[in-house]
């Protein structure tokens, strides 16, 4: 089916200024988390470790990109009255695919992320982009928009996770970097920097993620006055 449609929309694969904007806009000025306030829930739960955040980021990029693509391909065939359910089924289908794949590829991470993989379904980024973009645009553009938003989400996720893991556990990607106390991991042999620093457990707890996102918003809005909330 995809082949037929791509022929019909030949020439749609150009990559000009407009397409580039679709990819780069969500990274900063229109970031899904800090500006559109979408998909915050999972941003908090999975950012205790950088490795978890990266896996989650990849999963979300995959789901947003393909859900946008499929919805856009089907946009003229979806009956209006059951639009929401159809979109949700597409998303839930992709999420199940991700879950099954992750369970086969990396079982421990799958176990760690537990219900949060399932919660990608209700990650408002995906649903929000389907409604706002894919239902009204051509497949190629929708696909790019999906990737852009997924990456924008993943960047914030990894940023929060880096702060939380580095200062909360003293490690990055499970390698001990700073701090004195416990070698949390069996594979660390080298001595860490800043041995006087004792990792701050508060950062591993979920409220810390809230504070870090708030600080990111603070910095971003100080630099770009357009985004400031007037109300």
């Amino acid at each position: 089916m995809a082949e037929v449609l791509t022929k019909k929309e030949a020439g749609a694969f150009s990559f000009g200024k407009e397409e580039k904007k679709l990819l780069t806009d969500p990274l900063n000025d229109n970031n899904p988390i800090t500006v559109q306030v979408l998909g915050v829930c999972s941003a908090l739960a999975v950012t205790t470790l950088v490795s978890k955040a990266i896996v989650m980021g990849i999963a979300v990029i995959f789901v947003t990109a393909l859900a946008n693509l499929f919805t856009s391909l089907l946009r003229n065939y979806i009956p209006k009255s059951i639009r929401m359910i159809v979109q949700l089924v597409i998303i839930a289908f992709l999420v199940t695919v991700v879950e099954l794949a992750l369970k086969a590829v990396n079982y421990p991470i799958w176990k760690d992320l537990s219900v949060f993989i399932g919660l990608i379904i209700t990650n408002c980024i995906v649903m929000g982009r389907l409604e706002a973009f894919a239902m009204a645009n051509k497949p190629w553009k929708s696909f790019l928009d999906g990737i852009g938003n997924g990456v924008g989400y993943a960047i914030i996720l990894v940023m929060v996770a880096v702060v939380r893991e580095l200062f909360g556990k003293g490690s990055l990607l499970d390698f001990k970097i700073i701090g004195s106390t416990p070698e949390y991991l069996l594979n660390t042999t080298s001595t860490a920097w800043l041995s006087w620093y004792s990792p701050n457990n508060l950062l591993v707890l979920s409220p810390a993620a809230m504070f870090i996102v708030a600080i990111i918003i603070w910095i971003q809005r100080s630099r770009n006055a357009k985004l400031v909330d007037i109300s």
Binding site: P207, M210, A214, I217, Q220, R221, V228, D229, S231
Partner: peptide, 23 residues
Amino acid sequence: VPAPLRGLGMAFFLTGLMGMAFM
């Protein structure tokens, strides 16, 4: 509230503080 924090930013801080209280 400092202008860049108004609205959303402050909401994040408040939710974090309430989360800590609930802990």
